[in-house]
Design a protein around this nucleic acid. Sequence first.
DNA 1: GCGACAG
DNA 2: ATCTTGTCGC
Length: 216
Amino acid sequence: MTEWPATPAEAIAVQEKLRGLVEPTDAGKTPRYVAGLDVAYDGDRLAAAVVVLDRETLAEVDRAVVNGVTTFPYVPGLFAFREVPALLAALEQLTITPELLVCDGHGIAHPRRFGLACHLGVLTKLPAIGAAKTTFVGTHRELAEERGAWAELVDGGEVVGAAVRTQDGVKPVYVSVGHRVRLETAIDHVLRLAPRYRLPETTRRADRACREGLLG
DNA sequence: GCGACAG
DNA sequence: ATCTTGTCGC
């Protein structure tokens, strides 16, 4: 990796330099191969997993899990610097190149509009979206209880993402643009990837894969 | 100045 | 992220 900071100040400078490269519009056709990415920790050790699913059937078509050690502390706003190196290593191990990255965290719904999903998208040039369990920045109106309901996530006067109800009566999932996908398309992907549970199937399977990778 | 703060 | 039992509901 060419661009890698050692301090929070340097990391922020990297984000400000790369943020202009984010493309918040749809590129390419509807993806067939969609990937879920996640990292699990045990002290200094970590395991990063990428699981590739067929968007239509949700069947797994490829996966890669890599073990490593933490190289950056968890700092709110700089989360990507902790996970990106291991996730890129896992992506390189894949046989099938995914056409969409579904990240466990935010895209532009970030203080500097450059969260994990933007970072991975820009570095790989692949379409990417963020699907997070909680908000980081922004507020939204209350949304209807039914699956499919959603509301804009607004921060500093701008729409940075959406709160999306993926199942009746569950807490919303926070979706945001990462790279090369517009918000409405990202919402559509998340709803299709979460036919039964609150979180997208991509996220659920990547979560299980990295936890297993931490053991064996 | 004091909290809050993706995972 | 991770530490952690039982419990309510389909």
